[in-house]
Design a binder for these strands. Structure first.
Lengths: 220, 220
DNA sequence: CTAATATTCTTTAGATAATTAGATTATTTA
DNA sequence: TAAATAATCTAATTATCTAAAGAATATTAG
């Protein structure tokens, strides 16, 4: 004999498990990292700026909420999102927060300090211009993230190597740099570096998760 | 002098405010109720089965996360979602939980115990059949929720009045009943009641929030 | 089989949240 | 202006979460 109230309580409790998994800043950062592809615990801990132990504990929470899955390879444990719906949820949650929290907007202002550095293009026209070779799209994330999924026509130029590889960029052609998404600082730094080298560079705010959530295609 | 880490921490913290707001079962239930339209605190508390004080406290949390807004009318305080994006987020979160948590699926099985009672129609064809008068769509939520938004061609027949108003239903025509969404028990009870009265009745799982999230039109 | 590495498990302290009851504020009605 | 109503605020208790540190486990290399 299960009462209506008990059934309802169970239903909302279960959904709240997912909400709870998304209620900690560090877990959100881990989810965003996993939107870039699978990573092992040490990578995740380093990128998120937390201890390995804490990363492991947060990943366990995400695993209990069935948002991530793990795969063992030798002595490494690789985590990944269970599917793209989780990435879409992250993008939706971020967008919702962005659209209503003033504190978030002003903090984001520090990431995108120079509006003219932002690529004014929408996805489709960027795609077209890139295909025609009218501009160069570079992916400034670490190479292993590029290898797992990247924007069409984008070439991998990790921020760490960018300075040494400037000569690989086709001359006299605008460059659009992207990274992990709106919260990531890699593309911002890339644009600054390129501008100092005299390259006409802008940043695309989207990462692969945002790109896919818009229904646009990705390459591997 | 704000470090990159500090900026990032702020960004994820802000998004986590929204995640945190969605991490409590009772707050989720309140959000789902507010998807039906604005309600005052006592209504919300009664429907969610909690005390007025607790409802007030949860609503304050939702307000701090900027997910709901309030309006005072006389001695009543009416709450509503700040916009449809919040309703979409609720629908997305529920869908994400539904698709991966087995416990949720089995609990949901108790709400939708008889699969043949579920309307097999998709939104557009339901709309067409309703327009042509081939079936009767009834909204079994309380009348004030119907008044704020409802499915096109639906008529209001609150569950509480349904038994007395059976004669208003066009005879020999299938009836599709809907309520607040997949977690709501009103439509299930309506279908049971109608079936006992010999009416060919099925349930539509969608509520207005799900309907709108699918990009389908609503009426007022 | 042993040592080294990568990760998880366990425990703990401090911080934060949920819930309840009592006091308080704002609004309407008499 | 006083009483009644609706909701919020404050304070207290209990429960839960975060983060860190030490112990334990699983896998590989020697």
């Amino acid at each position: 004999m299960t009462s209506a109230r008990e059934i309802k309580d169970t239903l909302y409790q279960q959904v709240a498990r997912v909400g709870k998994a998304l209620s900690s800043p560090k877990r959100l950062e881990l989810v965003e990292l996993l939107c870039q592809g699978e990573m092992h615990v040490e990578q995740l801990a380093t990128e998120a700026g937390i201890s390995l132990k804490l990363a492991s504990a947060h990943l366990k929470e995400l695993r209990l909420a069935q948002l991530v899955a793990l795969r063992r390879d030798g002595r490494r444990v690789f985590y990944s999102l269970v599917d793209d719906q989780v990435a879409d949820l992250w993008v939706a949650l971020r967008a919702c927060a962005e659209n209503r929290l003033l504190e978030l907007r002003s903090a984001l202002g520090e990431v995108v300090s120079h509006p003219h550095e932002l690529s004014p293009l929408n996805g489709k026209s960027l795609l077209n211009q890139a295909r025609r070779g009218e501009l160069t799209v570079i992916d400034v994330r670490p190479a292993n993230e590029y290898a797992q999924a990247h924007l069409p026509y984008a070439r991998s130029m990790p921020l760490a190597e960018l300075k040494q590889r400037l000569d690989e960029l086709p001359p006299d052609r605008p460059v659009v740099a992207y990274c992990r998404g709106p919260f990531c600082l890699l593309a911002k730094d890339a644009v600054t570096l390129l501008a100092q080298a005299g390259v006409n560079a802008t940043r695309l705010e989207d990462g692969v998760a945002e790109w896919r959530a818009r229904g646009l295609p990705l390459a591997q």
